[in-house]
């Protein structure tokens, strides 16, 4: 089947992934109850004509194609184009779509870091994340520790990520919902005046768009 070729091309690697994380060797470990349920649900849906293997493969490919690089491109555009930045802050879904990033039905809201305001995003109830722009959330975003504490003691949580903010910086925490997702527009680092959009995008990290980090400096 075509999707099997896709699987073999993309998922059977040894060692570390391109992003530097270990692959889970789940395909070779004993079948778990929940993995078995996934197989059964998927096959029943295919047999009954509710979904095709090609649709599943295409959806996995589309999700894999989403990465923090998409968000970094949006941020770099906002840093270099004031009119785009204004549109981004007015409607981040529409501004992202301008650049070819389909945000779907989710309402995306960009919150801007300035000299005296730092924003951070969380989903206390579940795992809501700007996944249609940045890809799937990191594991820690979905942990009890991050969800419970970020709204209560954000400075301490940020310090655990190595981000110590001055007392004079106001910290704003944004709690996402299923239909309303946030992305942080980090402040453009000093010393980047001569850089073009592509070079600037390389400074924008995933965590800087969650608010648990800052962009790299040149």
């Amino acid at each position: 089947m075509p999707h099997d070729h896709h699987d073999h091309d993309h998922f059977h690697h040894d060692g570390m992934s391109p992003s530097g994380h270990p692959y889970r060797a789940d395909n070779d470990e004993p079948l778990s109850y929940w993995q078995c349920m996934e197989i059964a649900v998927r096959e029943l849906l295919i047999e009954k004509g509710h979904v095709t293997p090609a649709e599943i493969a295409a959806q996995i490919e589309a999700m894999d194609a989403r990465s923090p690089a998409n968000g970094a491109a949006v941020v770099a555009r906002a840093w270099t184009d004031p009119a785009f930045k204004a549109r981004l802050l007015a409607d981040a879904s529409a501004a992202s779509a301008e650049m070819g990033f389909d945000i779907g039905g989710l309402r995306l809201i960009a919150v801007e870091n300035t000299g005296d305001v730092h924003n951070v995003i969380v989903c206390t109830l579940c795992s809501c994340y700007p996944r249609n722009l940045l890809g799937l959330p990191p594991d820690w975003y979905k942990t009890r520790a991050y969800r419970a504490r970020t709204v209560k003691e954000p400075r301490k949580v940020l310090a655990e990520f190595g981000l110590e903010l001055p007392e004079t910086t106001q910290v704003r925490v944004h709690d996402s919902t299923a239909d309303m997702r946030y992305i942080v527009l980090p402040a453009r680092p000093a010393g980047t005046e001569g850089m073009d959009e592509t070079a600037l995008a390389a400074l924008v990290t995933r965590d800087s768009m969650i608010g648990t980090g800052l962009p790299k400096t040149p």
């Binding site: 395909n27 998927r42 996995i60 942990t143």
Partner: peptide, 27 residues
Amino acid sequence: DMGGQDAGPVTPAEHDFALWEKRVDAL
């Protein structure tokens, strides 16, 4: 509904999703 509760330190762990996890997400 855990916002504001006490909890331990944030461990910045991550992993690349396994095929079966990607399939669940896709479904």
